[in-house]
């Protein structure tokens, strides 16, 4: 029983990073229907930016993290404005290849600048100190990640539902042309979307980096986040979050009780099953295509 509780707790803990990456994917997908493969690397470069400020310029934490978050927003703006917007007659697969290309460029830049040696980012909270709730351990960093993930989720949810900008984003997603006719600058909306998404990804990156950082650290969270987003329906923020936590818990339970080797693989098997039953994910309404 104790083990069971610990597995649930660990699942929730790891689910938080998946949730953040999932949210980041969903935000972009919602407006442009592109699964953004560069998401992980956008977060990576922002967290290495924070690392550089801390390590080489000796900035205090709050300044360095604030700078990294601002950097991430600007990066999102820049990528949308200078690359994705320039795509001629874009189609989804073409845009996917563009995001793969961006991913390679960013990964290359980070590895070029910082080399391949693993590093550890200084962080005010130790990743290896834990709270004990009874005999269940949750590390301080994981607790922080959980809190941050929930706060971001709530803010984004409220923002997208009630603010003017959020409504405009929704309109853009539903019908680009109609939204333009109604006076929404869809281009600008897209740019803001990328900024927000990059920001959320950066938060995830900053919370992953204190354990160990290296150029490939965002691959796993990205894949799992993408998987969670798909399982949740790809367009639903709460869906992505719930699915991310489910994924984390399932992984831990499966690793604990069945086979640790197939821990990562089982997540995908379950997703395939879920999708076979609900083809549009857990939380999205099935969209019936007309011919």
């Amino acid at each position: 029983m104790l083990d069971f509780m610990q597995m649930i707790a660990s699942g929730i803990a790891v689910g938080s990073t998946y949730a953040l990456m999932g949210i980041a994917m969903v935000i972009i997908y919602k407006t442009s229907e592109v699964p953004n493969f560069a998401q992980g690397e956008m977060a990576l470069i922002s967290s290495f930016f924070a690392f550089m400020l801390l390590d080489q310029y000796g900035l205090p934490y709050h300044l360095a993290f604030a700078a990294a978050l601002i950097f991430s927003i600007l990066l999102g703006f820049f990528l949308e404005f200078s690359i994705l917007r320039r795509a001629k007659e874009p189609n989804v697969l073409g845009l996917i290849v563009i995001t793969i290309g961006i991913e390679m460029i960013l990964l290359g830049l980070v590895s070029w600048k910082f080399g391949a040696d693993p590093k550890s980012m200084p962080f005010p909270i130790s990743p290896w100190e834990s709270f004990a709730i009874g005999n269940v351990f949750v590390s301080q960093l994981e607790m922080l990640t959980l809190v941050v993930a929930l706060i971001i989720m709530v803010i984004l949810f409220v923002f997208l539902r009630y603010s003017k900008l959020g409504v405009a984003m929704k309109a853009t997603q539903q019908n680009h042309i109609a939204a333009r006719i109604m006076g929404i600058r869809t281009n600008r909306i897209m740019m803001i979307t990328w900024g927000i998404s990059s920001f959320v990804g950066c938060v995830a990156g900053l919370l992953i980096a204190p354990t160990t950082m290296q150029p490939f650290m965002m691959w796993d969270p990205l894949l799992k986040g993408f998987a969670a987003a798909v399982m949740g329906g790809m367009t639903s923020l709460p869906g992505a979050v719930v699915a991310a936590y489910l994924l984390g818990i399932i992984e831990n339970l499966f690793g604990g009780y069945v086979s640790i080797e197939f821990k990562s693989a089982v997540a995908f098997a379950i997703i395939v099953l879920v999708l076979c039953i609900k083809p549009s994910g857990l939380f999205a309404r099935h969209y019936i295509k007309k011919v």
Partner: peptide, 20 residues
């Protein structure tokens, strides 16, 4: 005997096995 996959990042399940 706890196998670690190259891509695994979350080590909690592994450590739990070891602790058990």
């Amino acid at each position: 005997k706890v196998p670690v996959e190259l891509k695994d990042q979350d080590m909690k399940p592994h450590v739990m096995k070891l602790r058990q």
